[in-house]
Structures are given as C-alpha cells and as structure tokens.
Write a protein that binds this DNA or RNA. Structure first.
Length: 923
RNA sequence: AGGCGCGUAGCUCAGUGGUAGAGCGCUGCCUUUACAUGGCAGAGGAGGGGGUUCGAAUCCUUCCGCGCCUACCA
C-alpha cells in the first residue's frame, strides 16, 4: 500500500543508492548504442551547491536521463576543478585562523596541506549533487589536478610553446607588459577576472608648471593622483591649438620636481578633462601604449602590494640627468625660475615610501593643495576595475608573465561556429561569442600562486628557459645546450585555472592516450552552461579542443539564464537573498525543486525562483502520488497483455490519443531544449486530462469491476500511468521510480533505464476525440450555467437536450453516468415541443441544453466564429492568388510547387463556399 | 558609446500573421470514498505613436521605460 502522503526524504536516498549500486549511471564504451555525452562543468572543489548549480545540473540530468531512456549510451562525466585562487584562499584562511602564514610553511608543505583539505572537505559538492538526483557516472570522476589531467596540461603547454604562428612567434611565450595585478592576492589575473564597479570618486585638476615659462602651467585632470610620481610625460593632441606651442617643452612634475616632456599624441582627447593628460606608462593601460609608442621610460611607483615604492624612479632620475642636455637645461631653468614651493619638499616624497596607494593619494592631494597646485576637485563617478575574487581595485603593473596567443587559436573556433559545427542555443549568443573571439587579446596564463599546475619551464642560472613535460626532459635539453649538467629551477608560477578547464572535454577521456573513451565520447553532444562562462570556458574549450583534436568539443552549447530571487534580484550574500537548494530539497523534495526548475527554464531566460514556486510544484508531485493511490485502490496494475491498438471504448481511445500528443509534445520540447514546454505538456496531461477528466470518467465504469469495460479501463489506466511515469522521470526521477517499482512496472531501480514512451497506435482516435470533446464541453457548459444560475449544489437538475439528430441524444445517454456525476444531473431527456417557461437554453453546436430558471443565451458566438474563419480563409486565398499572378513566381518555381499552390487555392475557395453556406444556414 | 534582449492578467511567463493562453494569486461555491497539497465556476490583459496587411501580441519604424554584455571615461 502506498502511504497516504509522499515522503521524499526517506525515499530519495534509498533510490539514489539503489541506482548507483545497480550501475544505472554508467556508460558502456563497448555498447552498440549511439553515445550521448555531456561533460559536466566541473564545479570548484571548494564549492557547495547553490541555486545556479541546481539549475544547470537539473537541466543536464534531465537531458541525460531522457537520452538514456531513449537507449543512448550516455556518459555524463563528473569531476571538480582545483580552482587555483579560490582554493588557495580557503586554505590560507584556515591557516590564518591558526596564526599560520603559508610563506612560513613553504610551498611544498602548503600544497600538501591543500591536498589534505581536499581529501577532507573537497567532496561536499559531489555529495550534494547526489541529493539533487544527478545521474553522473561517478567511477569516472576526475579532478583537474589528477595525474592524467596534469600530464595533459603539461603536454598542451609544451606543444603550444613549440608551435609558432606565421610571424614566428610562439603560441605560448613570456612577455613583460602591463597586467591586471591583484594587490590583495598578489598575482596577475586575466582580463576576464576583472569586474568593473562604479565608484564615486573625484577628478583632481593638477597644475604642472611649464619649464622655462614662469607663471605658466599646464593643467592635467586625473582620478589617480598617487600615480603621478611615475609620470614621464604630459600628452596633448597634435591639433590642439591651446597647447601647440608647448609641445617639445618640459613640464615640472610637482612634488618630485623634475621635468617631464610635453608630447603630442593622438591618444589625448581635447574634449576630455583639460585636453592635456598625464602619462604614467607603468600604471595605466592606455598610458602604457603611449609610452611604448613614444619610447618613454616606464618606472613603477607602486609595488606588488600597491604600496608606494620609490626605488624605480631614483635611477630614472639619474639616468636622465646625465644623458639629456635639454633635460638638464630644463631642470636648471625650472629650479632657477620657480619658487621652490612648486616642487615640494624632497622629504615629502620620501615620506610616501611604503604608504598604501589610497593613503598616498590623500597625502598627495593635501600636499598639492598646500602648494597651490590643485586647481580644483570635481566629484566624478567612474568604472574602476576590481579583482573578481578579492574585490579590491586592480593595479596595472609592469611584470613578466606567460601569455597564450589566443588570436591564432580563436580563428578555427570562430569558423566552427560560423559553419554550424557547433551551434549555440539560443542562437543569439553566437554574436557574443564572435564579438569577443574576433577581438581576443593575449591571454595571461601565469598566476603567482602555489596551488595549481606549476608552469613546466625550467631556468638555468644564466636565464635560459627550457620548456618540457618533465624535469628530466628539461635537464636533458639543458645538458644538450650547455654540454654539461647545470642546475635548473622551475618557474614558480602556476597556470590559470581555466587553462586546465579548457582541456576538460578531452583530458577527462584520457588524452593524450588514444583511449576507447576518447574515440567514442569526443566530441560531446551538448555543453550546458550559463552565459557568464562563455568567454572563460566555452571559448577556451573550443580553441583547445579544435587545436589538439581537430574537432569541436561539443555540437551544441545550451546557454541557460541566471537564477534570481522572486523579485528578479541577483542572489548574493550581501543582499541576503540566497536560497539554498538543499534546504528546498529537505522541505519539498528533490523532484519538486527539479520540476520547478524545468517549468521555469527556457533558452536564454533567467529563472526567478522562490520557495513559494517550489511549494506549488510540490503539489504536482502530491497529485501524481494520489493519482497512483487511486489506481492502487482500484486494482489498476501493469498488464503486459494490454494492447492499446485493441482499445474498444471511446474513453480509452481518447485518453490514449491524448497521451500520444503529450508524448510528442514532451519529446519535441526536450529536443529543442524548451524545458518549460516539456514540463507544461507533462503537467497538463497528468493533471488536467488524466486526473480531472479520465479518472472521473473512469469511476462509474470501474464500479462494475468485472465488466469487460472496467477491465479495459483498468488496463488503459495502468498503461497510461506507466507512460506518465516515464515522461516525468527525467524531471522527477525519484517519485516516478518509486511508483514504477511499487507498482511492479519493472524490476527495482529499472525506470531509469526503461524506454522513453512511444505514441501508441490507437484505433479511430479522431472519432473518440470528437466524442469526448463533446462530452467534456457539455459537462463544462452545464457546470457553467449552474454556477451562473446559482443552482444549489445539492440539487440534481434534469438536462433537456434539444437536437435534430437522434444520434446526439443517444450519445448523451451513453455518457449518462458520467454526466450525472460530473454535471450533477438527474437525467437527460429529449426536449419535445415548446421551450419550458423560465428555462435556460444553451447551444452547444449541435445540441441544446435547457436548465430550469434561466434566461436565454444567444448563438452569436457560433456565427462570429464562422465569419472569422471565412475571412481568414479568404485572406489566405488572396495571398495564394497573388503569388500565382506573379509571373516571376510561375516562371521560376518548379511545376509541382505551382501546381501545389493551385490546389491550395482551389481548396481555400471550396472552404470559403462551405463556410458561407454554413453562415447562411445559421442566419 | 556599441551590442544583445525585454515590455502581454495583480505576479511569473507562454504564444513566428488568423477567436489573447497557462501557473500562482484573487472572488464565489463545494468535504462527491485518490488528493482541501483537492474539485468546480468566475473576474481580470497587449508601454506610446506611425507603417505594412482584409486581419498585427506577432513583421517594419520611431519614441518611452527596463535589464544585461563589451569597451572607454583625463
């Protein structure tokens, strides 16, 4: 006996274990079946399941379970990402609680500690994925720092290093240039790891005295006065008349007191600020470009913790003084002609050493003001780049890093999407992909961290670099180069986490070994992810997959939206509107959560989700459970001998036919990644059609339990319920499997591998549909009239049917039991003679219902319907006629197309005539 | 600044030129033995302008409002 209520918590864990034990999630590389592959976007090993995970993994599991039921050999590849920065931060925080700094531990000990942490706490998210019901092939679980995957990373690095583009440049190379530096994490980060936040700051207008012209200033505007210590020029636009005479002269850099060149450069925009802009090549990306173009010195004045460091401007000072006569002259002039106050106190600059950049900013502004060099300060709101992990403003710093020449790799990836070898769903995301890929920048792949794949490059004491997959190979190469063994030290940096994630679709399958799995499951079928990860991950997988395997890593990229709260706000800790999926699972069951997600998810749409939504879909789970209880109570059991093609009753044929349409709709919706349509089709069929109508119609039939009709209805109900369970299984795996097992549709834990339903052959479906539609409509109309007339529920009213055809009355009589029950009617009688006084008349197309105590209801609706239908058909006919009149169309279209249009025109014209005649009859 | 998207019932959203739909909420009625986590019935709707069309939620155009992405902001 089924329990009165469904208790998900006890059932879910038992079923999941049962499936896992039975190997129900496993792929079979030796099977004949066509494979179907989804690579899981590996969650961070530090992660715990949040709503975004719940969405993406529900979608993936729904697809996986559906394809598995279709008989495909599915591989849903599980795994986690080592998440370099995130994980290192977690462990460092733990150590900090014990008062330990990783630098005191040393690299080796620290990494050991991270692995230990991973062993203890890294399994959180995989346990949580099980709670969600995710049918991942667990024995194949991978981690981005597994030996195999690490070997793949090194191989990729070495091969890209050894590959050169047309201009002879390596695809991986070292370069000294400006990078996004995160001063909190003390590492370089890529452009993508930078988030812009709007900051209400100030724009400071600073007067730089012009050398040799006493009393004249050139004013620059800046949001970052602290970087002025590193200014090496002031740029004006070459066409800017205001400053033309100053080009080539020197300005005195306040505070420090030495001259810097005034240069003409297109970068300067006369419209912005004062039209003159200070150039700090070592701390601003635009200034860096100007610095390269103008061959300016590039001293850094901030160190890796974003504190002021004067070391680099001191040598710059002396070099220039000794090497440049003009400069020396300018300096002498300036010193001679300007009051000393314009240069500030040398001790002030020294006092900045070691100050945080924002403290330095305050001090500098105050000092400039004191010196009378601060022209004005304006409030200024602007976007400031922040590290996405640390949340602090990034500091552009001039450092040597490893770069990947993404431009070369991007080209074939772009082409693959252009030619449709990989398609995005929804398609508009292809634009986003193209826009970024066509203007892709060199990818900074080195990180100053300890946790990650250490860069496989070794240096000799002379600075020669030896890139190799192993230290032995590097040593061998060095021996060959030097003719003797030399001491090598490995590059300290590790690779960007996304470098290894980009290999995920093939590194997990054993690449570079030529494994059976690699041949069979690559390329994957669909990648499911959010749009926020298109650049980070999808693009990199495309580039690396195509480069190393010659084929795209997946055929389809399905992009889903973001999970938001009920009001459409992004979920965030600071807003306190986080919804915990595990809490929802505890309260409502995994099925309710999963079905809610499916019902609210369509391509490219954000999902607004709150507990109330899940609660309402939990009712659907309850409804299904109760429908099953009804079946149980009425001895409805799976019957292998039941054959839908031999259904004889209109009722059974009708429900089978409706089931067929639900099957078709659900399948088509999943095929198109329209999860809400899939959910809606199942929901409507189960609740509205099966429960609200079929079961109610079945009740009087089942009352005579031994009658052949009752047997047929029982067989049909069991058959249809079985198919409902199959249809719903991808979205609601637990309750469906439980009912499947309990009813004995198959072995325990077998629904997961049972075939996805096929439409049944149903005899005379159209006639059955027609008849049941009539009955449903009759009952609905009667109910409606009863409510409108305030007929007390307790009274059973006779229904008077007036109809020209005896057949209609006979049909009604056939359904009398159901009508009695559902319309609360006492009897169905033909109406003879006059309309009874004070009675209601209801026109139902071919029949008339008359109820007591009512006014007459008219028949305009039917007339309007016919008229509109006629107009519509006439419109279509006109269009076809126009097409046929078009000489061009007739000449160019193949004869059969023209003929087809002629036929359509004739049909339309006949329809018009028929509708016209029907209208005449009504009027 | 550029790009993408959105605007339909109180709310969340479907609907690719032909009678405006669903879920939730709301109102009323009903404990009829699967289910009150239920059943039945009902009220309630196209951001503004212009255009194409016999016909526009749908196609075009414009304005307004909103969201997101990218770049830049001295």
């Amino acid at each position: 006996m089924l329990d009165k209520t469904y208790n998900p918590s006890e059932i879910e864990s038992r079923l999941y274990e049962g499936w896992e034990r039975a190997g129900a999630f496993a792929c079979d590389p030796d099977a004949n079946a066509q494979p179907f592959t989804i690579m899981i976007p590996p969650p961070n090993v530090t992660g715990s399941l949040h709503m975004g995970h719940a969405l993406t993994f529900t979608v993936q599991d729904t697809l996986i379970r559906w394809r598995r039921m279709q008989g495909r050999d599915v591989l849903w590849q599980p795994g986690t990402d080592h998440a370099g920065i995130a994980t290192q931060m977690v462990v460092e925080r733990l150590l900090a609680e014990q008062g330990v700094d990783r630098r005191d531990m040393g690299r080796e000990k620290f990494i050991e500690r991270v692995w230990q942490w991973k062993a203890e706490s890294g399994g959180t998210i995989t346990r949580q994925l099980r709670r969600l019901g995710a049918s991942l092939d667990w024995p194949r679980e991978r981690f981005t720092m597994d030996d195999g995957l690490s070997a793949a990373v090194r191989k990729v690095f070495v091969e890209l290093y050894n590959t050169k583009d047309e201009s002879g440049r390596r695809l991986i190379y070292r370069d000294k240039r400006l990078v996004n530096w995160d001063p909190k994490l003390k590492t370089a980060i890529s452009d993508l790891e930078v988030e812009n936040h709007e900051i209400k700051g100030s724009l400071w207008y600073i007067r730089y005295p012009v050398a040799g012209e006493p009393g004249r200033f050139i004013t620059v505007a800046t949001t970052r006065p602290e970087t002025m210590l590193g200014d090496t020029a002031v740029a004006v636009h070459p066409d800017d008349a205001r400053y033309r005479d100053l080009v080539g002269k020197y300005a005195i850099l306040p505070l420090v007191g030495w001259p810097i060149r005034i240069i003409a450069d297109d970068y300067s925009d006369p419209e912005k600020g004062t039209g003159a802009v200070k150039i700090t090549p070592a701390h601003d990306f635009n200034d860096f470009v100007v610095g390269q173009r103008q061959d300016l010195p590039m001293p850094s004045v901030l160190d890796r913790t974003a504190r002021v460091s004067l070391a680099e401007i001191k040598p710059y000072w002396s070099i220039n003084v000794s090497g440049d006569d003009d400069f020396e002259q300018a300096l002498a002039d300036a010193r001679a002609r300007f009051p000393f106050r314009h240069f500030g106190q040398p001790s002030f600059v020294s006092s900045l050493e070691g100050k945080d950049r924002f403290e330095a900013r305050k001090a500098i502004v105050a000092e400039l003001e004191r010196l009378g060099l601060l022209e004005k300060t304006e409030p200024h709101t602007h976007q400031v780049p922040h590290g996405d992990r640390s949340g602090v403003p990034i500091e552009p710093l001039l450092t040597t890093q490893w770069y990947c020449n993404a431009e070369v790799l991007a080209k074939p990836a772009i082409e693959a999407v252009e030619t449709g070898r990989t398609v995005f769903v929804p398609k508009q995301w292809e634009n986003t992909f193209f826009a970024w890929m066509r203007e892709i920048q060199p990818w900074c792949i080195s990180r100053q961290l300890w946790w990650g794949h250490q860069i496989p490059c070794w240096y000799s004491s002379e600075g020669n670099e030896f890139v190799a997959e192993t230290e032995e190979e590097a040593k061998a190469a060095a021996r060959k180069h030097f003719g003797t063994d030399v001491l090598l030290t490995q590059d300290e940096d590790v690779l960007d986490t996304w470098f290894s994630s980009g290999l995920w679709p093939f590194s997990t399958l054993g690449w570079p070994e030529k494994t059976k799995e690699l041949a069979r499951y690559y390329p994957g079928d669909v990648l499911v992810t959010g749009f926020d990860i298109i650049f980070f991950w999808v693009a990199r997988m495309m580039m690396q997959g195509i480069h190393f395997l010659g084929e795209v890593p997946f055929r389809t990229v399905y992009i889903h939206g973001l999970v938001r709260d009920e009001r459409g706000q992004k979920m965030s800790k600071s807003k306190g509107n986080i919804i915990d999926p595990l809490e929802l699972i505890d309260r409502y069951g995994a099925d309710a959560l999963r079905f809610t997600i499916c019902a609210l998810t369509g391509p490219g749409r954000d999902v607004k989700l709150g507990a109330a939504r899940v609660e309402s879909f939990r009712r659907f789970v309850t409804k299904l459970w109760n429908a099953a209880r009804f079946c149980e109570m009425n001895a409805i059991r799976p019957d292998a001998s039941f054959d839908p093609s031999r259904a004889s009753l209109p009722l059974t044929r009708w429900i089978l036919d409706a089931m067929n349409r639900a099957i078709e709709e659900a399948g088509a919706a999943l095929e198109a990644y329209r999860f809400y349509e899939y959910a809606a089709a199942c929901y409507r069929f189960t609740w509205d059609t099966f429960c609200d109508w079929f079961v109610e119609f079945a009740k009087p039939v089942l009352a005579e339990s031994d009658a052949p009709a009752a047997r047929e209805v029982r067989g049909t109900a069991a058959y249809v319920l079985g198919n409902i369970l199959r249809l719903l299984h991808p979205a609601m795996p637990f309750v469906t499997e439980e009912l499947w097992d309990r009813f004995g549709y198959g072995e325990a834990y077998s629904l997961i591998r049972t075939a996805w339903p096929e439409p049944a052959r149903v005899p005379d479906a159209a006639a059955a549909r027609d008849e049941l539609d009539w009955v449903v409509r009759l009952i609905s109309e009667v109910r409606s009239v009863r409510t409108e007339m305030n007929v007390p529920p307790g009274t059973r009213t006779p229904i008077l049917l007036r109809d020209a055809a005896a057949e209609t009355l006979a049909r009604g009589q056939r359904w009398m039991e159901a009508i009695r029950r559902l319309a609360r009617a006492s009897e169905l009688k033909p109406l003879a003679g006059e309309m009874p006084k004070g009675s209601a008349q209801l026109v139902l197309g071919e029949a008339t219902v008359i109820l007591p105590l009512a006014d007459v209801i008219d028949i305009d609706a039917e007339r309007t319907r016919l008229a509109k239908e006629r107009d519509k058909t006439a419109g279509e006919a006109r269009k076809i006629a126009q097409k046929l009149d078009n000489a061009d169309f007739v000449r160019r279209a193949p004869e059969e197309v023209v003929e087809e249009n002629r036929e359509r025109l004739a049909t339309a014209q006949a329809d018009i005539a028929r509708l016209e005649a029907a209208l005449q009859r009504i009027v």
